[in-house]
Amino acid sequence: MQSENRFFDDFAKMMNGLAGTVAGAGREAEAQMREKAKGLFGGMDFVSREEFDAVKAMAAAARDEADALKARIDAIEARLNGAATPAEGA
């Protein structure tokens, strides 16, 4: 009976060691994949999220400014057209 317990104890220790080895190999494979991805994408011209958000905010501000300027131009044209109409009729 005691020999059976020893067998199972040894088997359990072996399985624990194998599980640790497999987990370590998985971590190593993940680290290698990360390094390969960094090497692959590192050479490309990607922008960071911060740069993208900054340009996006600047574009929105420029669009708002362009809308405001268009509204001012439309108001000036309306005043000029309103002032020019009576002068043409006189």
Rank of each mutant, 00 (worst) to 15 (best):
A87S: 10
M15K: 08
V22T: 08
N81M: 13
M58G: 02
E77K: 15
F11W: 04
A68M: 02
L40D: 02
R72V: 13
K13Y: 01
R49E: 11
K56F: 11
M1Q: 03
A66R: 04
R79V: 13
R27A: 15
M14W: 02
F8W: 11
D64N: 13
M14Y: 02
K36R: 12
G43Q: 09
R6Y: 04
P86S: 09
A75W: 01
M44T: 09
R72Y: 04
E51H: 13
E65I: 03
T85L: 12
F7Q: 08
D10V: 02
A87Y: 08
A62F: 10
Q32I: 15
A59W: 02
G39S: 08
G20P: 00
M33P: 00
D53G: 04
M1Y: 02
F8G: 00
A59G: 02
N81E: 10
A83P: 00
M1F: 04
D74A: 15
S48T: 15
A23S: 12
A71H: 03
S3M: 03
A59I: 09
N81Y: 08
A78L: 12
D74K: 11
D10G: 14
E30V: 09
A90Q: 04
A90V: 08
A84H: 01
M1V: 06
A78E: 08
M14P: 00
F52L: 12
K13S: 09
I76L: 14
G20T: 04
G39H: 03
E35H: 05
L18I: 12
Q32R: 15
A66T: 03
A12Y: 02
Q32M: 15
M15V: 13
A87Q: 07
G24W: 01
K56R: 15
A71W: 01
A61I: 06
E30L: 12
F8M: 07
K70F: 02
V55T: 08
T85M: 08
G17K: 03
A54E: 06
R27L: 14
E51L: 14
E88T: 14
N81C: 10
A62G: 07
R72S: 11
P86M: 07
G39P: 00
F41E: 02
A29P: 01
M58E: 07
G39T: 09
R79L: 13
R72N: 09
D10A: 07
